[in-house]
Design a protein around this nucleic acid. Structure first.
Length: 797
RNA sequence: GCCGAAGUGGCGGAACAGGCAGACGCGCACGACUCAAACUCGUGUGGGGCAACCCUUGUGGGUUCGACUCCCACCUUCGGCACCA
């Protein structure tokens, strides 16, 4: 499977680069005898449709379906083997009926919840964005580039964090590119450490307990102050009357600052003293409590102990405000030098100034201290994640409605499964107002509460489109399952028997840009469905392959503004789809991408022309008249060998998506045939055998020309239904090998031998070569290395 | 700053369980065909040298009989993350 396209309305070179190699892989596997399911569909909800609709004044639905029609036509030009009869379109009510069904299942299972929380908001698109949709240092909207702002909204979220550990650990069980695994691991951002409870000295009788999170409990004795996030709920309680005004001013200032300023590491740290003090539970020390915006409420507990001697940020802060800096860990050589990585951990130093822990080696100290914290009730082992729960609410109309109802009597209640789908009205206002457009559609908004029957309102937010794309591969198996039927909570969302047969999928291809978005949600979804008993696997795809990006001829990303967009249709018209397919696969490794070179496509075009000539044109009389007896046995053997080498090489390359070298191998074989055509070889049986095999090696990459050639060779059935040729390793083997003879590592001569020559024979013959003798003159042989079938290296001095 | 990937002819790229660096293609040069051009076909094409030979896979070290390939340090480029405690 290849990640499904968004129906933007125009098929560009990138689509060709994404889909045609994937098709070649599918076609190859079909010829190898596998039962191959290669479906396609459209990820049809989303912002671009609304943006275009607003711009052109037409309904997103109209725009989207027109684009899908157009793209289907364009996609067909690629000549891919898609199972069009299993196509699924995510904006179809019979599709999103199930998207909503999944939402309800998640809600029932406690995986979906609603929370009032700050969200990233794009003021231009007038919608919330997922964290993954906010890009760059300036935190801009992935779609329109406008810097995002913070807004407090009631949001539906999925508890993806429940699966944080499994999402990391299960990466070991799947064959995915290492870089994607790394990106996901970093994105989830698991940190292990401890939560430690500090008590406060305040005007209140009992004092406030403040819990901090640290990854370095072994540095607890070095804490010289504490920092709370400005919005930490305990700030008010710990602030002394004298500091109240200053604290309030700082809080207001921090609240006004946007994420960009607040989140930038190079900004000079600022903060203010609360006037309150906390007691360090490990040594009873009284340390001042500050608030500072370099501590975020959203991570850990929103409170830290500051250890300036061993943390750069705390060090910067302490330096600015003149706070104490005290070392509790020595360096590798026992020295207590200035702040440096030697003291940051993983050194072979030891703890100092830390009471009974003095002398504990730094390596493992965090564990030792944590155990002691737990024993003595001072703290506990804790894990924190960078990953947040997945916010799926969107204040947009072109998405699957969230199937919930807000009733003044009963609260928030789910739409009964039997009432699905909650349909999008076709006549809704689509111009964004900042509130969900569906709020202004009376017919949609007003509904009877399914519990009490009273007047209620529908949820008017729609779902993030990543929700739709988290289950689409399963939808392909039996698209629009139970279309038009009433569905229930205990239904299966697809045909179970077929799903058991096809799932999980074997190979998934697509761009790396989805590493921490779609590919993470997709994995989460599979695990959630497993726990709901809907699927019996934990990972949606065993193998992932990320293709690279095709660039403009100038080596830059293709964009209209740069004027470097290559229109594939033009090239298809001029050279044909096969040439374009082949050229894209020939550029280089698929995972690398690269610039489109308008002159290089000629090479593939010429290759196909020559294949045509070799297969279709009759050899000249001169070749034929030499007769069968004229053919040299060595020449026959050479061609046979090359043929079998090519079969094995091309098969191996296609198996591993190495299309560039597969094409190079086909070119080599064809070049040999071009040279042989005007020789007696072309009257030999091996000739027919070879051109037949050549035609059978081409369909995955060149589906059209190979079909035509196959028929010209006199066959009736489609070439695509033929079996992949059998490569014979015996026949592919070289009869003679040029064994390199080196003197002191430099090639000086060669020995031509049959494979498997004995080491002592090789050594003797190598030493006897006149050329070698010349190089050995005046030297004595100290050592001879013989690598069978490869080389002889004579070490002499 | 941290994490990841990658640096090979004029260009895209081959070859890495360590064993002839530059497969295949583009481009270029010369030749054939043509009145001429394009197409097509043939030959050549990493650099230096008349030559024997010498040099060459980002830079500098190392391991090895032997390194594009392994190890260490650095440089450059491209991705991702970034005050995450």
């Amino acid at each position: 499977l290849t990640m499904l396209p968004y129906p933007s309305g125009d098929l560009h070179t990138g689509h060709w680069y994404t889909f045609t190699p994937s098709d070649a892989g599918a076609r190859y596997r079909r010829m190898k005898g596998y039962n191959v399911f290669f479906p396609i569909g459209f990820d049809a909800f989303g912002l671009p449709a609304e943006n275009a609709a607003i711009k052109h004044g037409i309904h997103p639905k109209q725009w989207t379906y027109a684009n899908i029609d157009r793209m289907r036509q364009q996609l067909r030009k690629m000549g891919a083997m898609w199972a069009w009869d299993h196509e699924a379109v995510s904006c179809d009510p019979e599709y999103y009926k199930w998207t909503q069904w999944f939402f309800l299942k998640f809600y029932d299972a406690g995986l979906a919840y609603r929370e009032f929380s700050p969200v990233d908001w794009c003021p231009s698109c007038n919608t919330t964005l997922a964290r993954e949709q906010v890009w760059g240092d300036d935190r801009h909207c992935e779609r329109c580039g406008t810097p995002v702002i913070k807004k407090e909204l009631n949001q539906w979220k999925f508890r993806i964090t429940n699966y944080a550990d499994e999402l990391i650990d299960a990466l070991d069980t799947i064959d995915w590119p290492e870089r994607v695994k790394t990106m996901q691991t970093n994105w989830i951002g698991r940190s292990e450490g401890a939560e430690v409870t500090f008590t406060t000295e305040t005007t209140t009788e009992t004092g406030e307990d403040l819990v901090i999170f640290t990854t370095r409990p072994d540095t607890l004795w070095g804490a010289t102050f504490m920092v709370l996030a400005p919005e930490h709920p305990a700030v008010e309680a710990v602030t002394s009357p004298a500091q109240q005004a200053a604290v309030k001013t700082y809080q207001e200032q921090a609240a006004r600052l946007d994420e960009k300023t607040r989140g930038s590491a190079d900004k000079e740290k600022s903060g203010v003293f609360t006037g309150g003090y906390a007691v360090n539970p490990v040594n009873g020390e009284r340390i001042p409590i500050w608030i500072a915006d370099y501590v975020m409420m959203g991570y850990g507990t929103g409170a830290i102990m500051a250890v300036p001697a061993h943390d750069q940020r705390d060090f910067d802060f302490a330096t600015r405000y003149g706070l104490e800096i005290r070392r509790v860990i020595t360096g590798p050589d026992g020295a207590t030098g200035p702040l440096s990585e030697a003291y940051a951990g993983k050194s072979d130093g030891a703890m100092i100034n830390s009471g009974q822990f003095d002398g504990t080696p730094v390596d493992g100290a965090a564990k030792t201290v944590t155990a002691w914290l737990e024993e003595t009730g001072r703290g506990k082992h804790a894990v924190n994640y960078r990953l947040r729960d997945w916010g799926i609410s969107r204040q947009r109309m072109w998405g699957a409605p969230i199937p919930m109802i807000h009733c003044p009597q009963c609260g928030t209640v789910p739409v009964p499964y039997e009432d699905l789908p909650v349909r999008l009205p076709d006549d809704a206002e689509f111009r964004p107002t900042g509130e969900s457009p569906l709020r202004y559609h009376a017919g949609f908004l007003h509904v009877q509460c399914p519990v009490c029957g009273g007047d209620a309102e529908r949820e008017t937010d729609t779902m993030d489109t990543f929700m739709c794309s988290s289950w689409y591969p399963y939808a392909y198996i039996s698209p629009y399952w139970k279309s038009g039927e009433t569905i229930h909570a205990d239904d299966m969302p697809w045909d179970r028997e077929s799903a058991d047969y096809w799932l999980p999928m074997d190979i998934y291809t697509g761009g790396i840009e989805h590493a921490t978005m779609h590919l993470l949600y997709f994995r989460f979804f599979a695990k959630a469905l497993r726990d709901l008993g809907i699927v019996n696997f934990s990972e949606p795809t065993m193998r992932l392959f990320n293709q690279g990006t095709i660039l403009g001829p100038d080596g830059e990303k293709m964009s209209k503004s740069r004027g470097n967009v290559v229109n594939p249709d033009e090239y298809v018209a001029r050279y044909g789809a096969d040439t374009v397919r082949g050229y894209l696969m020939f550029i280089g490794p698929w995972e690398l991408g690269g610039p489109w070179d308008p002159s290089a496509i000629e090479g593939v075009s010429r290759f196909l022309q020559r294949v045509w000539t070799v297969v279709v044109d009759e050899p000249s009389d001169a070749a034929g008249s030499n007769g069968k007896e004229g053919a040299d046995a060595n020449a026959v053997r050479d061609l046979e060998r090359k043929l079998h080498q090519t079969i094995l090489k091309v098969g191996d390359d296609l198996e591993n998506f190495r299309f560039n070298t597969a094409i190079a191998a086909l070119m080599e074989l064809n070049n040999m045939l071009v040279r042989a055509k005007e020789t007696p070889l072309s009257a030999q049986p091996i000739w027919q055998e070879t051109i037949t095999a050549l035609v059978l090696l081409m369909p995955p990459i060149f589906p059209h020309i190979s079909e035509e050639l196959w028929h010209r060779l006199g066959h009736e059935q489609s070439v695509h239904l033929q079996a992949w040729p059998q490569g014979d390793a015996e026949k592919a083997r070289e009869d003679e090998i040029a064994i390199v003879v080196q003197v002191n590592g430099k090639v000086r001569d060669k020995l031509v031998k049959a494979p498997g020559a004995a080491q002592d024979v090789l050594q003797r013959e190598a030493l006897e070569l006149p050329n070698i003798q010349k190089w050995l003159e005046g030297k004595s042989v100290r050592k001879v290395i013989v690598v069978p079938d490869k080389l002889v290296n004579i070490v002499a001095s």
